[in-house]
Design a protein around this nucleic acid. Structure first.
Lengths: 343, 343
DNA sequence: CTGAAAGCGCTTACAG
DNA sequence: CTGAAAGCGCTTACAG
């Protein structure tokens, strides 16, 4: 039994036209007269009994819009950071807006191709693109960002418009300030970030902001990915020795827990002990993400990123041409109890 | 400019009927006569220039099938284990089959409702359901498993049919055998698994298989989630003391790294040191997932789970009514270099 | 191989 | 408020 026959059957039973049945089930009319109300009730009841379900694709064809959105990630996972809170935020916002979610992947060449986005829109049956490609600054990518015929919203990049991004600079500043407020003065920053992402520059910048505002000497070690194995290691070792001199523990802020582990390696060689001589802080995706080796962490606003991104995309789909960049605040947590094995 | 006008325009330019343009672009005909080949080429060229894109929704309505699949996860994340290799496997297999992917969520009541699956099928415009709800053994759930009108394939449950599951028993056995082969004899198992999942029983069972086959005394501590705080802790402590007596390190296999950390806590209290007195092994989602505190790990076949699941679902959609359960092998890795901080 | 027609399941004006 | 019609953009027989 196909859907058309089902509708016809309901129409015949109740004694109305097919289009009336569809209209009632669509539910966009308010009935006043009791006889109409009863009839509508009858139709709904029959539809439920027969297990009728509207065909969203047919509706999309008729309405000429799809009521769905594509979530676009890079084929190479390292260019699309996808923590589960991000997916949750996207899904919650889409549910609230009554929109469906399609999962797609793309490559570098796809993004550079001006025909790619329209292709995704029609072939995936979606009205807009939520693009989660954050570490690939292909200049031609920005054509897509501005095209009014293919509404897109970008996550986790700084583009000035049509994007949502965690405010890494403010987060680094707040994290550093929180450490200073707890009495720490010898605070270092280490960033060997392997990704091409604005955070690589913003985190040390925010750190410097806070140190300079407090009249403290910044000590930031940053470098290309491979540098930990080369001179960077010696540089870090000597900075650690310098910072270790003084009352109480020194604090190292890592770009990620990867850097924190590098610090731990060297600490061991230098006879410095975590908790007593040394504390670690970093940026994490989820609370407790640092395996409890951290005394303080900045937790990324991934859930909000998803929600806010969908909301802005919905506005673009609705016709607002350009959306302003929104920078989202991180959550700073201090005084984390260290894991017994690290203490 | 809408799509119909575009097709009409191409048809007018080339001097053929609309339906011929659609037919050429669909590409299901082989042209022999050169004049036809040239004309077809002309049509494709114009379509590309105008940026024509087929409307998949319209095709779905005409074909009465959607060429897409829904990936169904539980609203409560703890009931749907979703590591990224699983998503990758699903997407690779769907790409190969030319199918789209929709992401959906469900609750307990949804699964118990016999009308839910048909609803998802039609309203999400998909031909089948890939269900990733693995820790909720609602008996009514199995109605959905068998319904021939709503093709579904379940991931990570043991249902005997229409499901794909990692073979936890075999993995536990292989992991234990590998440890025995490396000369270990004093091997314990600890499982405080907090989830209702077949692995909770299969992992200790596989461990016992291997121990008994080697003529060794099994020492398995399993219990309800909370038991670590109660008597379970004392039980584990005494078992660890017993196992510690002998040449070389004892090995503890944890249900997950959570259990391994419990062992480490107690080890510290007992003055046992990781690497010398004690080694750890466990089950992980990704290679190196145990933060390098493990000397051996069983890596879950998540990618294969996604691929195999999609393949089986595609067969169900194509008409094969019931698919046999497939149990997938894990990857066993031994002789992992311990992390310097643990060593 | 092409054209003309009917159909997929819906929505949206438009008379009544 | 309803019915009849036209339309959304495709596919699939069916004559020619």
């Amino acid at each position: 039994m196909n859907a058309s026959n089902l509708i016809q059957q309901i129409a015949d039973t109740v004694g109305v036209h097919r289009s009336t049945v569809l209209r009632i089930l669509r539910g966009d009319l308010e009935y006043r007269r009791p006889s109409y109300v009863q009839r509508a009730e009858r139709v709904r009841e029959l539809a439920a009994r027969y297990g009728y379900r509207p065909n969203t694709a047919a509706r999309a064809v008729a309405e000429q819009r799809f009521r769905a959105v594509a979530f676009l990630n890079h084929r190479d996972r390292q260019f699309s950071h996808l923590p589960s809170p991000l997916i949750d935020g996207v899904q919650d916002a889409l549910d609230a807006a009554g929109l469906g979610l399609l999962l797609t992947r793309c490559s570098d060449t796809d993004l550079a191709d001006p025909g790619y986005a329209p292709k995704v829109l029609r072939e995936c049956c979606v009205d807009g693109l939520l693009v989660n490609v954050n570490a690939l600054p292909n200049p031609r990518l920005y054509d897509l960002l501005d095209r009014p015929d293919t509404p897109s919203l970008w996550l986790n990049i700084r583009a000035g418009r049509n994007c949502i991004c965690p405010d890494d600079r403010a987060a680094a500043r707040s994290l550093t300030e929180a450490l200073i407020a707890r009495g720490h003065q010898r605070i270092g920053y280490l960033g060997f970030g392997t990704v091409r992402h604005y955070s690589k520059a913003e985190r040390p910048a925010g750190y410097r902001d806070a140190m300079e505002a407090a009249g403290l000497e910044p000590c930031a070690i940053t470098g290309p990915p491979g540098s930990i194995a080369g001179g960077g290691r010696a540089l870090l070792a000597s900075a650690m020795t310098t910072l270790a001199t003084g009352p109480g523990p020194a604090v190292w802020i890592g770009y990620s827990t990867f850097e924190c582990i590098q610090v731990l390696h060297l600490a061991q060689a230098q006879g410095l002990r975590l908790g007593e001589d040394l504390l670690l802080a970093s940026f994490v995706d989820k609370p407790g993400g640092g395996n409890r080796m951290l005394c303080a962490e900045a937790v990324a606003p991934s859930y909000d990123l998803g929600r806010t991104g969908v909301d802005a995309l919905v506005r673009r789909i609705a016709g607002e041409l350009e959306q302003p960049e929104i920078a989202l605040p991180w959550t700073i947590t201090t005084d984390i109890e260290p894991h017994p094995n690290w203490a």
